[in-house]
């Protein structure tokens, strides 16, 4: 049972590695953790398009946040 969990974990890790590599190739700008969250969301059947839009929007929001923070400073 433990070994099965282990192999499963290994497989998951390998998959994540592959995905990370692809992500890097595609220049998505996602780190390991964000990627894993995204993968999990996708696995739950979330619309990937919507998710991508959310991520893009979040990035933009944080960027503007940073700018606004920088400006008064």
């Amino acid at each position: 049972m433990a070994s099965a969990t282990n192999t499963n974990l290994n497989a998951v890790r390998e998959t994540m590695d592959v995905l990370l590599e692809i992500s890097r190739l595609l220049n998505t700008g996602l780190d390991m953790e964000s990627l894993s969250i995204c993968v999990r969301l996708c696995e739950q059947g979330i619309n990937p398009e919507a998710l991508s839009a959310v991520i893009k929007e979040l990035r933009k929001a944080s960027e503007t946040l940073k700018v606004s923070e920088n400006c008064p400073n």
């Binding site: 497989a11 998951v12 998959t15 995905l19 692809i22 992500s23 595609l26 220049n27 998505t28 700008g29 996602l30 995204c38 993968v39 996708c42 696995e43 059947g45 979330i46 990937p48 398009e49 998710l51 991508s52 839009a53 991520i55 893009k56």
Partner: peptide, 17 residues
């Protein structure tokens, strides 16, 4: 491992720059 491979790939594609 992944059930929705296309979904993940699509996400990555949309995020690609």
């Amino acid at each position: 491992i992944l059930k929705h491979r296309w979904s993940v790939l699509y996400l990555l594609l949309s995020l690609s720059e």
